[in-house]
Design a protein around this nucleic acid. Structure first.
Lengths: 173, 173
DNA sequence: TTGCTCCTCACGTCACGTGAGGTGGC
DNA sequence: TTGCTCCTCACGTCACGTGAGGTGGC
């Protein structure tokens, strides 16, 4: 039997999280002590492990509550759906990134002391997690959605037509 | 001068959205008619255009309220920060996807009539937006984070060692 | 008179965090 | 007695959506 504080620490959760799970009926303590403290059983611990696991998959608590009652093959279906939901969210965020990038491009200035110079721009792209391969992907997307803007942008970066050709070709193949 | 309904339709927003923006002081109607209807001016329209644009970048309304008072170069800084915030969110979602994929793998069965067969699996990956190039990326990530599991997974898919070698090599170079 | 648009509360959503005020255990 | 853990409300967060009940305009 664990108290709420011990259980929280064991799982790296806050006590208010467990109080909340209790309040919505997701995880009720097995019993109470004579002084009304919550007492969590080993079964409670196992259930919490599952809850935490599903949370790691970005599944809503209401859904988790239902899932815990289902058979494995039904859960499989739900996880597949969740993959798609996550993909949609990622698409939305990617779209927001592109929107911002398009605005920032206008502030990239090749030689002069503009708001952003080429090196700064590269380091920005790097900082959002675009490594060598990610940049490739990014150029590819850019080329696909707006090839003319992509071309103009590479010129902004101070590249000569020869290098630009190489990049655009490398992307397309 | 536009009424709240007209303005909402013009921007594809709901009326309650505009009411909300009014209530938080983000966009107050310039004046009221004698019957207390909100009347939006052309300046209001321009401001709303900006609000909508920033919203498209995933920026919080509170932040938008501040941004509208700033000079361009300060906004540039904020947009760069926003890029990173978005990248963090994407990373979180990607992580959740990998967590799910690792669970689902256990249900992929090569020849027998398992929960998921190879073709179903491919179509799942396709449905979450992984096209030819995306799958390459996915294999790459997989190979990077857990090469052994990647190898095992390809065997699950019923591939022979020769093909597996090719895939893994292609990813690494 | 009938519809339509508008108005102002006020509550619900999601997953908690943060007090406030009070009580039991070592 | 002092700290510590625990308890139960209750309000705040984010960006609205959804009534409820009422009033002006064509």
């Amino acid at each position: 039997m664990h108290s709420i504080g011990k259980l929280a620490k064991k799982f790296g959760l806050s006590r208010s999280t467990l109080l909340y799970y209790d309040s919505i009926g997701l995880l009720k303590a097995e019993k109470r002590s004579k002084s009304n403290y919550r007492l969590y059983s080993n079964e409670n611990v196992i259930k919490l492990e599952q809850i935490v696991a599903y949370r790691q998959m970005g599944i809503a608590l209401k859904e988790i509550k239902r899932i815990l009652l289902l058979s494995d093959n039904k859960v499989t279906k739900i996880l597949q759906d969740q993959l798609i939901i996550l993909a949609d969210k990622i698409r939305t965020l990617r779209q927001q990134q592109y929107t911002i990038i398009k605005i920032l491009e206008d502030n990239v200035i090749p030689e002069k002391s503009g708001l952003i110079d080429k090196d700064a721009w590269i380091s920005i792209l790097r900082s959002i997690g675009l490594d060598k391969n990610g940049m490739k992907m990014w150029h590819k997307q850019f080329e696909k959605t707006s090839p003319q803007a992509h071309h103009d942008f590479l010129i902004y970066l101070g590249m000569d037509e020869e290098s630009i050709k190489r990049i655009r070709k490398g992307i397309l193949k």
